[in-house]
């Protein structure tokens, strides 16, 4: 790698992987809970919740970044409280980039898990009940393992999509090398500087390779592990 990428580019790659991994892992429990709520919904307003979950997928990422600034920024409602109470800060930090990525790719995870949940036989949880399994028991021993292929494929797809996130990150946490400069932001920075075309092309090739690897992995996982 050292010969192909400059140290700054290697940092951007490493940062991208790190931010995406954290984003996907942090969002996963919430995505699972949301998918449980939305699979075969039986409550009023499920359609509205579903629409809100899908918002980050269709909104301009810049708008998402702006909203994040408003809410989690230094003077934002939650942002100022987090800083005052815990000393946690998202702006200009890689954790902020992870937060933006998590939000943008959240619908992808919810969709995949929800599809997996909806394709499992509800009779199986009923059978588990008659065999003495309570709510959490069923959740961890029946529902979760049956949804596992969907969880894995959703996580991989979200990871791949997260590697490419640009608008929300640059708006929310800016383009700081070594802190928030992920691969797409590095490509952007390279194009802004004179003579950076070669660097941009290298990073672009790298992005394509990564995307292909993870999308293929996601598709393979979607072909259910069991059944």
């Amino acid at each position: 790698m050292g010969g192909f990428l400059s140290p700054a580019e290697a940092t951007a790659l490493w940062l991208s992987l790190q931010i995406s991994a954290v984003a996907v892992a942090a969002a996963l429990p919430f995505a699972f809970a949301m998918a449980l709520l939305l699979a075969r919904p039986r409550f009023f307003g499920a359609g509205i919740v579903d629409a809100i979950v899908h918002l980050p997928l269709v909104l301009p990422p810049v708008a998402v970044g702006y909203l994040l600034l408003v809410v989690f920024g230094g003077r934002g409602l939650i942002g100022s409280w987090l800083w005052d109470t815990f000393g946690i800060r998202f702006v200009f930090s890689w954790t902020g980039a992870a937060l933006a990525s998590a939000l943008i790719t959240f619908p992808l995870q919810v969709r995949a898990i929800r599809l997996a949940l909806e394709s499992t036989d509800p009779g199986l949880t009923a059978a588990a009940r008659t065999l003495g399994a309570g709510l959490w028991d069923r959740l961890f021993n029946i529902t979760l393992p049956l949804a596992l292929p969907g969880i894995v494929s959703g996580a991989i797809t979200a990871f791949a999509a997260s590697l490419g996130e640009f608008g929300a990150i640059i708006t929310f946490v800016s383009n700081i090398p070594g802190e928030t400069q992920t691969l797409p932001l590095a490509i952007y920075a390279a194009l802004q500087s004179p003579g950076g075309e070669m660097a941009a092309a290298r990073l672009c090739t790298l992005s394509i390779t990564l995307a292909l690897i993870f999308v293929t992995a996601g598709n393979l996982a979607a072909k259910r592990i069991w059944r």
Binding site: G123, L124, A126, A127, T130, I142, P145, L146, R227
Partner: peptide, 14 residues
């Protein structure tokens, strides 16, 4: 404490 044998067996596939 009532076990049911269903028509479609309902074995856990995993």
């Amino acid at each position: 404490r009532l076990a049911v044998v269903f028509q479609d067996a309902r074995l856990f596939p995993h």
